[in-house]
Design a protein around this nucleic acid. Sequence first.
DNA 1: GTATTTATCATACAAAGTCGGAAAACTCCT
DNA 2: AGGAGTTTTCCGACTTTGTATGATAAATAC
Lengths: 110, 110
Amino acid sequence: MGRQGYVGEFEQMLLLAALRLGGEAYGVRLMEELEGRIGRRVSRGSVYVTLDRMETKGWIASEISQSSPHRGGRPRRIVRVTAEGMAELRKSRLALMTLWDGLEEALDAG
Amino acid sequence: MGRQGYVGEFEQMLLLAALRLGGEAYGVRLMEELEGRIGRRVSRGSVYVTLDRMETKGWIASEISQSSPHRGGRPRRIVRVTAEGMAELRKSRLALMTLWDGLEEALDAG
DNA sequence: GTATTTATCATACAAAGTCGGAAAACTCCT
DNA sequence: AGGAGTTTTCCGACTTTGTATGATAAATAC
């Protein structure tokens, strides 16, 4: 692509899922949440790679979860949406709403 | 990427703009419409390439405009969103709404 | 015909997203 | 302690999507 400085679709979805999950926002869980909500398969790789990129861009921050009572498995990397991430989310929502505005009916009809 | 079978962000934007413009939906015009609505630069290439790809996928159909009274320039290729394109648009809207649901307040606050 | 305008096409490139295997870090059991 | 089973993250090769810009085409105006 070569887009710089706006939220892609998958990025947006991940940000929203992270926002919803709060302290439970880590890779695998995010993947499941997404799959459940949008009703299509999501691969692990997509999630982790996208998470990495968004962290680089400063839209999320992450830290390794310490406590892990009664479960196996590698420690979770918990993700949090930063203020920048929030701002991006607001922008992209606005853009989308501007584009959709007034078209809902036409769509339901056609 | 390697996604197959769901609308990307730019694709969605173009479909919506095309829907709105109706019989005026052709490359340059779509580009302007988009720029006006989302408030950022859009290159010609993005538009034409994405249009081509969506036509291959069957989400839009196009035909060369015949009439061209009083203006110079190459004939316009008018684009129309197909039933498949509409369906995709509906699906992606639903997915997005499901993800956004209940998060608007959290976002405005943060 | 030549210039001007409006628009599409070509194409090389950058970035985003997918996939599946493999390694890491932990718990449980014996 | 050692091995088995679990949960999760990481790796890397690949495909698709999106960007940028120069070239080309078709029409009008003079």
